[in-house]
Design a protein around this nucleic acid. Structure first.
Lengths: 349, 349
DNA sequence: ACTCGACATGAGATCGATCCCACATATCAG
DNA sequence: CTGATATGTGGGATCGATCTCATGTCGAGT
């Protein structure tokens, strides 16, 4: 490969002049510019990233940690990050944290070793103290997305879980549902608490409180949705609507409902969260609260780029959710929600 | 950050000794080893990737190009790549080629600029000549996955489209289907041709040829599946089975079938390809030919690592597909395939 | 006793860029 | 004419590692 010295020799100028031209700072005469540009063209010169990085201490690489690179949910976020980073001439290296504290620590260290200009973290655990120390010492700017808070972060992108959950719950209440189960993900997630507070708000608007619904904590998985729903169908046959912690939970719930011969939404209404890739492919199409995760990736990257440019940025940016209406929610069957009489059986449609 | 010089001073040895210890080559006395290890520990020393890369001309980064980073299909492949690369201490940078020749060229150049140790390419177009030249000149080893052939590649990982499609078609034929539609993706893809040849082989086994089925070319998209199926239901009401080019096409087909009030598999059987994330979430669960794309990512990365280690590798590795039996295929309704007598009506399950 | 090989270490060049600083010229105000 | 300012260029140190080569010690073999 041609080096900057080759170019400078060919163009009859010094390395400094070539460097100035490329960097676009400092003075370069028209004459020199033309000669250098021609030399670059002829030699097919491309600057050596390592040398540049070594000297200037920039890698033009942004590091990202997500829970799992293979998952469609995070893939979308990565897509958003990459798109934005590319327009600024930066690349992205992502690592998976597998929602495990040690793995997350390892991933961050790995990225730091790569001399990333900045980090975008979607973590599920608090950072290990020693890692926190290392991150701080490296002075690498950090932006976090979703998940839990993380001290060294200069900015934080959150998805508006509270309003999303509130909107979802309000929809169910509007449709007359009162016997509602909320199948929550784990309580270790900040998301969970935010959503619960949104749910509380929605309930309060109807003169109700969290005690008036059935809340169950499990994990964000299809298995939990399936098991919890199967159990509920026995223990709480009066329930008319299930609000799932995410679309995976909803998919599990749907399976259990179908297995029990229940019709959705005629017998039980079902509401998801996320708008995962497969939400629209379920039957019936899942009504769900969309988390615009690709947008979150874009915003986080934009924030990080701004920080790298030394611009001031808002410490928290909240991205609104959107209620996606499909076909898994219907009006409560039978009697009006206030009186508590037994409803007549509905015929299947 | 501490540098190698800091470590060497603290340990009372030369930089060379520290370097030898880290690289694990050359002689280092036990005494020196202990001193250096202690110094590294105390200072929290981590080698500077850039400096190392500049000198040794290795980045420990593997570059990947896939069609679209956001898509669940490629996300799985990236997951496989990453897993394997990590165990060898390498990271992955991926770029999207968007199945566009210029974008693919851009992505490759970008990765080459990053001094990737090797490239894993999943391209949909032939490489631009100038890019091919640049890749060759850089001497970066290349492994390709799926898609079309690519000259500079030292090894190629293919998914056994032919046997996969043959197995799928054989399943339909075994179930007595003879009025079959194959809704193919575009003819520009090598995949398409390989699958068609597998289909031919399966048909030949039943004394049939491609002329005996209905083949339609479109794109690998839900839209195509939907439109083509809607059309077929009118033009070819005799068709009893649809073999979709991939699961997206199948999802579209399923929508069209349901919209027309057809039952799957009672009225029409449906077969997909890929085993996408949502295949099992369709109703009925989609029977499909699984492409182990995560495995392809792992194998490609292993091959590349072997090449980087100077080991000889097989030029082509073919990964077998797997028929995933779910619930979208049933026996042909009506007449039995050999004799043309009336079969007893089937009850829906 | 001396030679050879294994073990052990350090000095210094090198990778390819960036960037500070010194220097040169031209222009213009006072 | 002098000094200040804008424009333009090149020399050389520098980033932090790697790696070759020179040098040195020690013990075994002859």
């Amino acid at each position: 490969m041609a080096t900057i010295t080759d170019v400078s020799k060919r163009a009859g100028v010094s390395r400094s002049t070539v460097s100035r031209l490329i960097a676009g700072n400092g003075y370069v005469s028209d004459e020199a510019r033309k000669a250098v540009e021609a030399a670059i063209q002829e030699l097919g010169y491309r600057p050596n990233t390592m040398a540049r990085g070594l000297r200037s201490n920039r890698s033009d690489i942004i590091g990202g940690v997500v829970v799992n690179v293979s998952s469609p949910f995070y893939a979308q976020m990565i897509g958003g990050m990459q798109e934005t980073a590319r327009s600024a001439g930066k690349s992205i290296i992502v690592a998976s944290g597998y929602a495990d504290r040690e793995e997350e620590a390892r991933a961050i260290i790995e990225l730091l070793d790569r001399a990333c200009d900045g980090l975008i973290l979607y973590l599920e655990n608090a950072l290990r103290d020693d890692v926190l120390e290392i991150v701080a010492r490296s002075k690498t700017p950090v932006v976090t997305v979703g998940g839990n808070e993380c001290p060294p972060a200069r900015a934080r992108v959150t998805i508006d879980n509270a309003s999303g959950a509130a909107a979802g719950m309000r929809l169910l209440l509007d449709k007359g549902h009162r016997q509602i189960a909320y199948l929550s993900g784990g309580t270790i997630y900040r998301d969970t608490h935010e959503r619960l507070s949104g749910i509380d708000a929605a309930l309060a608007g109807f003169g109700l409180s969290r005690n008036d619904i059935h809340v169950e904590h499990g994990s964000f998985s299809e298995t939990f949705g399936h098991e919890a729903t199967a159990r509920l169908l026995i223990e709480r046959p009066d329930i008319t609507a299930i609000f799932a912690g995410d679309d995976d939970v909803a998919a599990g719930a749907l399976l259990a409902l179908k297995a029990a011969g229940k019709l959705v939404p005629e017998d039980v209404s079902l509401l998801g969260f996320d708008d995962n890739f497969h939400a629209r492919h379920l039957t019936p199409g899942l009504t769900t609260v969309r988390q615009p995760v690709d947008e979150a990736g874009r915003v986080a990257t934009r924030l990080l780029l701004a920080i790298l440019d030394g611009e001031p940025v808002a410490p928290v940016i909240t991205i609104p959710t959107e209620l996606i209406l499909r076909h898994s929610i219907g009006p409560v069957r039978g009697l009006s929600p206030t009186s508590r009489h037994v409803a007549p059986a509905l015929t299947a449609s």
